[in-house]
Design a binder for these strands. Structure first.
Length: 376
RNA sequence: GCUACACUGUGAUUCU
């Protein structure tokens, strides 16, 4: 049963929900773990209705099941139902309170989040970090800083959150100060600081920190690769890529994208043909690569050849059509694509806005709001 | 012993 549960979880993690369900159904008497794991597999993939069906079918629901549902509704933007679940939960633990706090924060209700924070039975480091993060995300840097100062045991994640906050606010000095307040920063934290330096185009600082890091993981190398690529040092980026102890799918994609972004179609093609595994990210990078070089038909050929397409890939091809003046094709593709998000809406609205059909752009903007997508 | 909460590296639009 333990092994079966692990299998359900693994299938769920890689998105094979059918397989996950098959394993679940092969279990004689699934235990509470099995049910919860299946439930979260569906919930974390955004299959809200299926999650709810599983939740309702469960022989018994514990605090884990309730919290998983709460989070699922929160991620789907349904704060109302999330709150109802929270109120109906037979018992609540710290995790449940934290999940509700985060739900409020995600929905932009900072005051409600803070009220919850103040009246919670206990607060742990997750609670504090979620609250700090909430202030950061909504641009309340001062309150974030105040709360942070009061924390007794910030962990790497909390520090990372503050580093990011100061970095986004353009206050590199404060970010550095926090980083240097840690005696032995772990790889996680160093990576965050590396990225911050990279974003502020401090390549020398990147190199110096990189050189001082006792341990490097995949993220370390990939951030360095990007830092060089961002400055246009493609040869150095390539050198980093080949110096890595091993390459994973993320670093391959980062290398590919570096060449795409630099406009080097030939190198991009070579990487694409060499990489051991091409996922949906690699394919859409290639769509963009051809589109940038005005190879409309090649872009389309790559797109059509994709084994699976996600919303990013669809949006990329819509943009390619629009950019080449094929507004009708862009619109048709937009209408028929299986899923749309804010970026896809922006893309099609801008396409109309740039054309003589800007009234249609305005019309689409209203449609976007009707679909319940929050415009930016 | 396995499940739920904040959480570091890769792709699309605009702005910086």
């Amino acid at each position: 049963k333990y092994l079966h549960n692990r299998m359900i979880q693994m299938y769920g993690a890689c998105g094979s929900l059918e397989e996950a369900r098959r394993v679940f159904e092969s279990i004689d008497h699934p235990n509470g773990f099995s049910w919860n794991i299946l439930l979260t597999a569906y919930a974390q993939r955004g299959h809200l209705q299926d999650s709810k069906r599983i939740f309702d079918a469960m022989p018994e629901r514990d605090v884990v099941s309730w919290t998983a549902m709460l989070t699922a509704y929160s991620h789907a933007g349904d704060l109302h139902t999330a709150k109802e679940l929270f109120d109906q939960m037979p018992q609540k633990n710290n995790v449940a309170w934290n999940a509700m706090l985060h739900a409020y924060a995600q929905a932009g209700y900072l005051k409600l989040a803070r009220n919850l924070f103040d009246k919670m039975p206990q607060r742990n480091v997750v609670t504090w970090t979620a609250m700090v993060q909430a202030y950061v995300d909504h641009g309340h840097l001062e309150q974030a800083g105040n709360l942070f100062e009061k924390m007794r045991e910030p962990n790497a994640l909390t520090l990372h959150c503050m580093i990011l906050a100061y970095s986004q606010a353009g206050d590199l000095a404060s970010a550095k100060r926090i980083f240097h307040s840690v005696l032995c920063p772990d790889t996680f934290l160093c990576n965050a600081m590396l990225r911050t330096y990279s974003q502020h185009r401090q390549l020398n600082e990147c190199e110096s920190l990189f050189g001082r890091m006792p341990y490097r993981d995949m993220a370390t190398w990939t951030v360095m690769l990007q830092a060089y690529a961002l400055e246009g040092h493609l040869a150095s980026a390539k050198r980093i890529f080949h110096s890595m102890p091993e390459q994973d799918d993320v670093s391959w994609n980062a290398m590919l994208h570096a060449f795409v972004a630099s406009g080097d179609l030939e190198e991009a093609k070579t990487v694409f043909d060499t990489m051991p595994v091409r996922d949906v990210i690699s394919w859409s990078s290639m769509v963009t690569a051809y589109a940038q070089n005005r190879h409309l038909s090649s872009a389309k050929r790559i797109f059509d050849g994709m084994p699976e397409k996600d919303v990013v890939a669809w949006t990329a091809i819509v943009f390619v059509y629009a950019q080449n003046g094929l507004l009708t094709t862009a619109a048709f593709t937009f209408d028929t694509m299986p899923e749309r998000n804010l970026v896809s809406w922006n893309t099609i609205i801008q396409a109309y806005g740039d054309s003589i059909h800007c009234a249609r752009g305005v019309e689409l903007f209203r449609l976007l709001e009707m679909e319940g997508v929050e415009p930016d």
